[in-house]
Amino acid sequence: MNNIYFNLNQLQKTIMYYALKYKKKYTDIKVIAISKKRSINEIIQAYSFGQRAFGENYVQEAIKKINNIQLKIEWHFVGKIQSNKVSIIAKNFAWCHSITSKKHAELLNKYRPEILPPLNVLIQININCEKNKNGIYLYKLMNLVNFIYQLKKIKLRGIMIFPNQQKDIQQKIILYKKMYIILMKLKNKYKYTDTLSLGTSYDIEEAIASGSNMLRIGQKIFNKKINNH
C-alpha cells in the first residue's frame, strides 16, 4: 500500500478520534499538507488521494512546484516572509500564514493582483515571546489587526501559532486555549476572521482539544507509514 495513502487515512482517523474525544466538529478541521522539501511526485500523489491544500516554507522552492503542477491546489505560504519575495507570495498563494508586520501586510496588499480573490492572511503570534522565533507578541496584535482590516486585497482570516515546546499535554492545552479565546474575540468583532492555524504532526491532540480548525501536517503525511490510533 502507498505510504502517503496509508498516512492520509491514518491521519483522518486520528483527527476523527480526537474530534470525538473533545466534542469538536470533525468537518470543521482542515489539513494543510506541509510539502517543503517534498517532491512534485509526492505532492501529486497526495492530491490524487484527496489532499487539496499544501503549505510551503520557502518561496523559491514553492514557485517551482506551483509552476510545474497543473492541478487545482490551494497553496499556503507558512514560512517567514522576506520583503524581496512578498510580490511572489501575493501573486501565487491563496493563503499566507505568517504576517508579523504592517510593512508585509501593506506589500502583500499592494502586489495582490486585482483579478485574484483577496489573499487570505493569518497573523503569526509568538506565544512564548521567544527571541529566536518568528511572530509578534500578543500586546501588538490588535494594532496589526486593525491595520490589516483596512486593506482591500488581503483578508484577515485569523491567527497562526507554532507549537509550544512544552511536553506536558495539559499545559499545552491551557496555553493553546488562550489562543482560541483570542480568535473568538476577533471573530466577534471582525468579518471573515474564523481560523486558528495551530497543530502539527507532534501536537494534533492538543490542537484539536484547544479548538484549532487548521492543522499543518508534514511528517504524518509524507514519512514512511506512521501508526497513530
Rank of each mutant, 00 (worst) to 15 (best):
I154A: 08
C129Q: 10
N109Y: 05
A19T: 03
G135Y: 01
I154K: 06
A90V: 04
E42A: 07
K131R: 10
D194N: 14
I44P: 00
I221F: 09
S101Q: 12
M1C: 14
I40G: 09
Y17G: 01
N228P: 02
N84H: 06
K185E: 12
Y22W: 14
K65D: 10
Y111D: 12
N9F: 00
S201W: 00
G135Q: 05
S87G: 01
K155S: 06
T195P: 01
G211D: 07
K25N: 15
F162W: 04
V31A: 03
M179V: 04
T14F: 01
Q166A: 05
D28P: 03
I81N: 01
Q10N: 15
L141Y: 04
I208W: 04
R216Y: 10
G158F: 00
N227Q: 12
Y5M: 08
I99K: 05
I81W: 00
N213Y: 07
S210Q: 07
F49L: 11
I221Q: 06
F77T: 00
K172D: 08
F54T: 01
Y149A: 09
N3H: 02
T14R: 09
F49C: 06
I99N: 02
T195C: 08
I226H: 07
S212H: 11
F147D: 10
I148P: 00
I148H: 00
M184G: 08
I154N: 08
S197D: 10
